[in-house]
């Protein structure tokens, strides 16, 4: 157990030495929120959104964006590089299983995504008066599920990629449609009815809607949570099934 904790501590320290990961996961979504908030029309209540301002709708999107960048974009090359450089192999000759190293990477990326989310919520409140989530427990649950979804999705990309380079390419290609479903280009709530129904079946479309509902104070609709759980289970199963240690 103490060996696994030593691995986790080392990986957390190494994560902080990766300026790229730190920027994309922690700084970029926050910057996006701050910049959007500087646009005056984003701080005016929109006609179609029942009193909510565009910045209020974009805050959960910025949180999800950090989650996606952590799990789907940053995690896969990190995992693949550990395999590619023989770091997993070296570890498998010690009493510690190499799975401890993969787990540490997943935990560190997940923690970074959640920490980034908390900072975004705080900054949104302080700078632009975005209301705090009216149902914090539901919000936290949804955020954790969304983060898990992104992490297992990233783990699957790592499992299927032959090299760190290939996993970066796959992750970049995956990013755009996934960001779309999360509402980065247009909030899911404001999408046309048919499109919204389809997007709600994707992990981040469901997460986006669930976060919206939790922000407003209710519990997310059960089907949304169920969709997320199914995705997490399937992606996790697939990545464990196909992960190559060498």
């Amino acid at each position: 157990m103490s060996a696994s904790i030593a691995v986790l501590k080392a990986e957390a320290r190494l994560f902080r030495r990766e300026p790229g990961s730190v920027f994309w996961i922690l700084a970029f979504p926050l910057l996006l929120l701050v910049i959007l908030g500087l646009i005056p029309s984003f701080r005016e209540p929109g006609p179609a959104s029942g009193g909510a301002r565009p910045i209020d709708l974009y805050l959960p999107v910025a949180v999800l964006l950090g989650v996606i960048l952590a799990g789907l974009t940053s995690l896969p090359p990190a995992l693949t590089a550990y395999r590619e450089k023989g770091i997993l192999r070296r570890m498998s000759t010690t009493p510690v299983r190499p799975a401890a190293l993969l787990a540490a990477q997943v935990i560190v990326h997940g923690a970074a995504a959640l920490a980034g989310g908390i900072v975004i919520i705080a900054v949104g409140r302080l700078l632009y008066g975005v209301p705090l989530p009216a149902n914090p427990a539901a919000y936290a649950l949804t955020l954790v599920l969304g983060t898990l979804g992104a992490l297992v999705g990233g783990a699957l990309i790592a499992a299927l990629s032959r090299s760190a380079k290939a996993s970066t390419t796959t992750a970049t290609l995956a990013f755009f449609p996934v960001a779309f479903t999360a509402g980065v280009y247009a909030p899911v709530r404001s999408m046309p009815e048919v499109l919204r129904r389809v997007v709600e079946f994707t992990p981040f479309g469901a997460a986006s809607q669930a976060l919206d509902q939790a922000s407003a104070g209710s519990w997310p609709a059960l089907p949304l949570l169920a969709i997320m759980l199914v995705w997490i289970t399937v992606l996790a199963g697939a990545s464990v099934r196909w992960f190559r240690w060498e």
Binding site: A10, L14, E18, K85, G86, I87, R90
Partner: peptide, 8 residues
């Protein structure tokens, strides 16, 4: 052919 984490 087995490295360590580069920034360790």
């Amino acid at each position: 052919h087995s490295d360590l984490q580069g920034k360790l």
